[in-house]
């Protein structure tokens, strides 16, 4: 195994040493991408393209590698995020936020087919009504849009693209909305445990 510091030194070097290190790292990344995305049917060309993009990001981020993990593990994490981002981008390329919100898209790997119906209990229906009210009164319009898009199957980073912001900001909007709604239920005397119990068919 090549030591982590050795990797950084070689990638920071010049000439043949650097080229050899890049070439070795590319092979490692391609192997990892092919393995992790085998079930998605990705081919060698896709893996090579992703490895190339990831290498650029890795080389630009070498200063931020702190040695907490092995270098190759750190590099692979970047490559996998690059690959997932690209697959999400391709899948949602022609899908607008409105289409997702109104249920006109093909969702990605969510497997959601369970449509709630009249068989929902009275308690559960009351909970839905209360949630609708909390959404309407306690969330901002942006939070409502993010929640609708996420529930429609669009990943955080694709929503961020559509909203002209970044993944962290969208995640924070979703996170704050969840906490706000939880707080609203608690303020009206409904605990998280009661929510779970009603959803499970109890209470």
């Amino acid at each position: 195994m090549v030591a982590s510091m050795n990797w950084v030194e070689r990638l920071n070097a010049e000439g043949e040493t650097r080229e050899e290190a890049i070439s070795q790292l590319r092979v490692i990344l391609v192997r990892g991408i092919l393995k992790s995305f085998a079930s998605r049917g990705v081919d060698n060309a896709f893996a090579e393209d992703i490895a190339q993009d990831a290498l650029l990001r890795i080389l630009n981020s070498l200063d931020s590698f702190e040695g907490r993990s092995r270098f190759t593990t750190w590099a692979m994490a970047i490559a996998v995020r690059t690959a997932v981002s690209e697959l999400r981008r391709r899948h949602f390329r022609d899908v607008s936020l409105e289409q997702v919100i109104h249920g006109e898209n093909n969702t990605l790997d969510l497997g959601e087919t369970d449509v709630r119906s009249a068989e929902d209990s009275i308690d559960r229906q009351a909970l839905y009504d209360q949630l609708r009210e909390h959404i309407e009164t306690d969330l901002t319009e942006k939070q409502k849009t993010v929640i609708q898009a996420l529930l429609g199957g669009m990943p955080v980073e694709n929503i961020a693209d559509r909203m002209g912001t970044n993944r962290n900001a969208v995640y924070k909007m979703m996170h704050d909305a969840r906490l706000k709604l939880k707080q609203s239920f608690e303020s009206s005397g409904v605990s998280p445990e009661e929510i779970q119990s009603i959803l499970a068919g109890g209470a």
């Binding site: 959601e112 839905y128 949630l131 529930l151 969840r178 998280p192 779970q196 959803l199």
Partner: peptide, 19 residues
């Protein structure tokens, strides 16, 4: 903006687990 019961159900699960 309307939320179907199916979406509300999943959102409630997320809300109950929120930390």
């Amino acid at each position: 903006m309307t939320f179907s019961n199916d979406k509300l159900h999943r959102l409630l699960e997320m809300v109950a687990e929120a930390k």
